[in-house]
Design a protein around this nucleic acid. Sequence first.
DNA 1: GTCTATATACGGATAGAC
DNA 2: GTCTATCCGTATATAGAC
Lengths: 188, 188
Amino acid sequence: MKSTEEVKKNILNTAANLFYKQGYNSTGINQIIEESEIARASLYNHFKSKSDLLHAYLEDASKKWFDELYKYIADTEDPKEKILKMFDFRMERQIVNQYRGCPFIKAGAEIAQNDSLSFEIVDRNKMTFRDFILAIITDMKTDNNNLSKIEIADTLYMLLEGATVTASFQKNGEMMQRAKQIAKKLLY
Amino acid sequence: MKSTEEVKKNILNTAANLFYKQGYNSTGINQIIEESEIARASLYNHFKSKSDLLHAYLEDASKKWFDELYKYIADTEDPKEKILKMFDFRMERQIVNQYRGCPFIKAGAEIAQNDSLSFEIVDRNKMTFRDFILAIITDMKTDNNNLSKIEIADTLYMLLEGATVTASFQKNGEMMQRAKQIAKKLLY
DNA sequence: GTCTATATACGGATAGAC
DNA sequence: GTCTATCCGTATATAGAC
């Protein structure tokens, strides 16, 4: 009925949802196989361990995250508007996800200190995002002779991360709105 | 030999270390009682459940965190220097703790969505910190007529949170140093 | 490749002796 | 209040049939 590749995708999708919503450590293999409606050994056929599944999830989620971001700002031309749209992008995601916070930071916060591969994937995600912000800033005229373009990009990046993490325990988007207003003032 | 209050403190200290270093979900009751060298039922005498222990840990750690911060900046008078010392404070802690990140955000990232008490404690910790920054900024002359004092405080707060969380997956303090440089430029 | 059955360890929590 | 013994559920992972 289902191809082996579909089985794998199915497992990955189920795991992605559970890992994000419940957390990695709070999600058991049993629940994943149950909700995927596949056999236990099928999971271990496609992924050699639970942490292997975590790595696959993080890689896949990161790819999808950027795909969605690019799509979200695709028809925005003005660099400053592009930046502000990033705030909207992350705010909308947080609303949809009931302020569970950034999936990558969330995963990074609960994995063991020796799981360097997970940290690496999270780092790559965040630094790619930071570089993306910087690339947009570079295309921009700024009269902020106090901060360099790199510093502006870093500030925007940290505003976004700081605001998103704050939203995750406040369970509202107030700080994200404030961050956007600050960004607006920094840019204009 | 040991008073009942000492037993409780002992359990709390052990749990604090393990919860922060290994994570809450990765730390079992068994390990806590073993390393505390107390009996299983003694733990349940002092704390009615594992999550009760978590709440006690978060409250206690928050109190100690502010105690240490106040001590750290006690002999600094200049408001701007006080702010910069906060960056140093958090950087030093991250070095000591091998870049495990902020204990409150770390806990907030792995607890269940319905554990509202934990979120509340984390939120109180962070907003008290944000208000403390704002109080210092209020005492300050700023020529930044672009951002209001509240916005400056929010920016500094988010720079600190964003940088600390970034350090936790990069496993170095580079972004925290950058954040401090940016803060310096924002303040002077 | 997918299945079920099972191995083995540990999770949180409680009962009843002292 | 502290102790040990134990309950029951679930954890990750593997073996062997089909």
